[in-house]
Design a protein around this nucleic acid. Structure first.
Length: 573
DNA sequence: TTGCGAGACTCAGAAATATTAAT
DNA sequence: TATTAATATTTCTGAGTCTCGCA
C-alpha cells in the first residue's frame, strides 16, 4: 500500500513515543518529574500618541493611561460593539473612573474620539501596506523569539508551549449578552504571574527589570507552567499557560478521553435500558434523571451547570427552563435555547412517548422561568453515571455520539474509484452531520450572498456554453454547421463531444461547490474535528481509501493527533 | 449532607493570518 | 505575471465541564 502518512522513524536507542509507553495510570497522579521553561512573554508597552479627545468640542489632553483606554474604544468605533448597550454602559462606567471626580468628562456620549479613531485607522493602513520583505522580517523575528522562549523541557523532552504571551490589556468582549462586556482588562505585570517549575530546575528569569514573579511553585500534579488572574476583573477566570496540543500532556489526555468514550460504547446498551427504566419509574427524581440523560444521549446536549450573575444567561440540559421547550403533535418537542457561547439551539425532534409524557408533567404548574429539571443537578446526574463506570460523566456522551456517528457514516463509503476530491467531499459531508449533531455553528461569512450570486452566474455561463456545444453537435449530426460557425467552437464532431464531456464535469463540479458552500454556510466543521471525533476513525478511513491524511487534517491537527497516525486500517472505534 | 467555590482542564467561534485561486 | 479575492488554517481568549475539599 502507498505510504500515506509521513511518520518519524524510530532510531536505535531513541526513547519510545509516549503513546507506545505503558504509563497511563502513572500520569493520572503525577504529571512530570522535571519541568523547565522560560516563563512568559509580556506584550509590548503602550506607546502614547498624544492625540487629544474632544469633549463638548474642547480638546482634552489625556494621561497615557487614559489615552490607551480611549484608543481601545476608538478602534471599536464602527463595529457593532460601539452600539452594544451593555458594552457601551460598562465601558463608560470604567472609562470615567480613570478621571478625577472634578474632571469635566462626565459622559461617553459627549466624548468625540474622531481624531484618535483617524489615528487608529492610519495605523491599520500602515500595517496593511507593509512590504512583503518587512512582513517576512517580522515573521522571522517572531519565530526567533518563539524558538527561544516558546518551548519548555518536560522530563528531558522539548515541548511547544501554547500561549506563551500573556493576554494583552484591552476591553473585555464577552459573548452574547455578557453582563460585564466592556470592562477593562488590565495590563499584567510579573507580579501577577505564578510560575510552576521543577524543584531542581532553574527558575525562569523575570523579563522585566526591577520586577519579580508573584510566586514560584513546584507542583508536579498539574500540567500548567504558569497562571495569572486579571487583578482588576473580579469576575474573570484564572488563565493558565499550558503546553501546545502536540505535547504529551495534551495528547495523552486526548487519547484517554477517546478511550473513555470507547468504553462507553461497550456499556451503552445497558445504560440506555437503565435510563428507560428510570423514565418509567414512579420516583420523580429518577424520572428526571432518566429523562435528562435521554436528552443528553439523543440530542448530544451539554450537561448545563448553574451559572452566576456575572455570566451570560445560557443553559444546557439540566438548566433548561420551561420557556425553552414546547410540545408538538406526534410526540415531537421543540427545544429553543441559548447554549454555550450564546449559540442558539433550535431543534424539533420526535422523542420517545414516555419521555414526552414526562416532560409534559415536569412543565405542569411551573412558570416560564422555572427549571424543567428542578429535582436534579449536574452533580446528581454525573453521580448516577458513575454507577456505570467510575470515570463516566455527561460530556463523554458527546464524544461517544460524535465518534459513533462519524464511523457509521464513513462506513457507507463504497466507491474507491472516486477522485480524491470527491472522497474528501464525502468525508466533509459526514463531518457536517456530526457538527450539526453537536450544534457547532458559525456566523454567515461576510459577503456571503454576493459570493453566492457570483457563483450562480458562473454556473449559468457554464450551462449556456454547454447547451451551445450541444446544438453545435446537433449541427454536425444534421450536417448543418454553417449557421453557428462560431470561431470558438470545436471544428470536428469528435472534439465537440470531448468538449461536451469537459463542460458537463465542469458544471457538475460547480454545482457541488455551490451546494457545499451553502450547506456549510452556518456550520462550523472544525470544532468536532478538533475535539469530538476520534482521529483514529479518520486515519483508518483514509488509509483504507487511499486518501492522503493532509487532505482532511491540516498540519496542526496532524501534530495534535500524532498518536493516532499509526492506526491500522482495520481499526474500529 | 449537601452545597458551594476554587482549581484545572476541555472546548467554542471570531478574528487574524497564510495560502490558493481567480482575474 | 501581478493583484486581488476567496478560502483554509492558526491564534486568541472566552465559556464550558467536572472534581475536590471545606464549612
Amino acid at each position: 500500500m502507498t505510504e500515506l502518512v509521513n511518520l518519524p522513524k524510530k532510531r536505535k536507542g531513541e526513547s519510545t513515543n509516549w503513546w507506545e509507553e505503558d504509563e497511563l495510570d502513572d500520569f493520572s497522579i503525577q504529571k512530570w518529574k522535571s519541568l523547565e521553561h522560560h516563563g512568559v512573554i509580556f506584550p509590548p508597552d503602550y506607546i502614547p500618541h498624544s492625540i487629544p479627545l474632544f469633549y463638548d468640542g474642547e480638546a482634552i489632553s489625556l494621561t497615557p493611561e487614559q489615552e490607551e483606554v480611549a484608543t481601545w474604544w476608538s478602534s471599536v468605533i464602527g463595529t457593532e460593539w460601539e452600539t452594544k448597550e451593555i458594552f457601551r454602559k460598562n465601558f463608560e462606567h470604567n472609562f470615567l473612573k480613570l478621571f478625577t471626580s472634578d474632571h469635566k468628562i462626565k459622559s461617553l456620549d459627549k466624548c468625540d474620539f474622531k481624531k484618535i479613531a483617524e489615528y487608529v485607522e492610519a495605523q491599520r493602513e500602515i500595517k496593511k501596506a507593509r512590504l512583503p520583505e518587512e512582513k517576512k522580517q517580522e515573521r522571522e523575528a517572531k519565530q526567533k523569539i518563539d524558538e527561544e522562549i516558546g518551548y519548555g523541557i518536560v522530563d528531558g523532552k522539548r515541548e511547544k508551549i501554547s500561549n506563551i504571551i500573556v493576554e494583552p490589556p484591552g476591553l473585555f468582549r464577552g459573548r452574547g449578552q455578557h453582563p460585564k462586556a466592556g470592562y477593562i482588562k488590565a495590563r499584567l505585570r510579573p507580579e501577577d504571574i505564578t510560575i510552576n517549575v521543577g524543584k531542581s530546575n532553574l527558575v525562569p528569569k523575570c523579563p522585566v527589570p526591577g520586577h519579580a514573579w508573584k510566586n514560584v511553585v513546584h507542583n508536579s500534579y498539574v500540567t500548567w507552567l504558569a497562571y495569572y488572574k486579571d487583578p482588576e476583573l473580579s469576575f474573570s477566570n484564572v488563565k493558565y499557560v499550558y503546553l501546545a496540543a502536540s505535547s504529551k500532556f495534551k495528547g495523552l489526555n486526548d487519547k484517554l478521553k477517546y478511550e473513555k468514550a470507547r468504553k462507553l460504547r461497550g456499556l451503552i446498551d445497558g445504560i440506555r435500558s437503565d435510563y428507560f427504566d428510570k423514565i418509567k419509574k414512579d420516583n420523580q427524581v429518577n424520572k428526571q434523571l432518566g429523562t435528562a440523560l435521554y436528552l443528553i444521549d439523543k440530542l448530544a446536549l451539554r450537561v448545563g451547570n448553574e451559572k452566576t450573575e456575572d455570566e451570560a444567561d445560557t443553559v444546557g440540559c439540566c438548566s433548561l427552563k420551561v420557556s425553552n421547550i414546547s410540545f408538538k403533535e406526534n410526540y415531537q418537542i421543540t427545544l429553543d435555547f441559548l447554549g454555550k457561547d450564546s449559540m442558539r439551539y433550535f431543534n424539533t425532534v420526535s422523542i420517545d412517548p414516555n419521555v414526552h409524557e414526562n416532560l409534559k408533567k415536569f412543565v405542569e404548574g411551573k412558570g416560564q422561568d422555572e427549571e424543567l429539571f428542578d429535582l436534579i443537578t449536574t452533580s446528581s446526574l454525573n453521580e448516577y453515571l458513575k454507577t456505570f463506570m467510575k470515570s463516566l460523566s455527561a460530556k463523554v456522551f458527546r464524544t461517544y455520539n460524535a465518534s459513533v456517528t462519524l464511523q457509521m457514516l464513513l462506513a457507507k463509503f463504497n466507491n474507491k474509484k472516486m477522485q480524491v476530491e470527491e472522497k474528501v467531499q464525502f468525508y466533509t459531508d459526514a463531518n457536517r452531520e456530526v457538527a450539526i449533531l453537536c450544534n457547532h455553528q458559525k456566523s454567515t461569512p461576510k459577503n456571503f450572498e454576493v459570493q453566492m450570486e457570483k457563483m450562480q452566474d458562473k454556473l449559468k455561463d457554464k450551462l449556456e456554453s454547454l447547451s451551445l456545444l450541444e446544438t453545435h453537435l446537433k449541427g454536425f449530426l444534421s450536417k448543418k454547421i454553417a449557421q453557428n460557425a462560431d470561431k470558438k467552437l470545436p471544428t470536428s464532431e469528435e472534439n465537440t463531444r470531448k468538449a461536451i464531456v469537459r463542460a458537463k464535469t465542469s458544471v457538475k463540479n460547480m454545482e457541488i461547490k455551490l451546494k457545499m458552500k451553502d450547506d456549510n454556510k452556518t456550520i462550523a466543521l472544525g470544532t468536532s474535528k478538533i475535539n469530538y471525533m476520534d482521529p483514529r476513525i479518520t486515519v483508518a478511513w483514509c488509509k483504507n481509501n487511499e486518501v492522503p491524511i493532509e487532505k482532511v487534517f491540516p498540519k496542526a491537527l496532524r501534530s495534535k493527533f500524532i498518536w493516532a497516525m499509526y492506526t491500522e486500517p482495520a481499526w474500529e472505534f
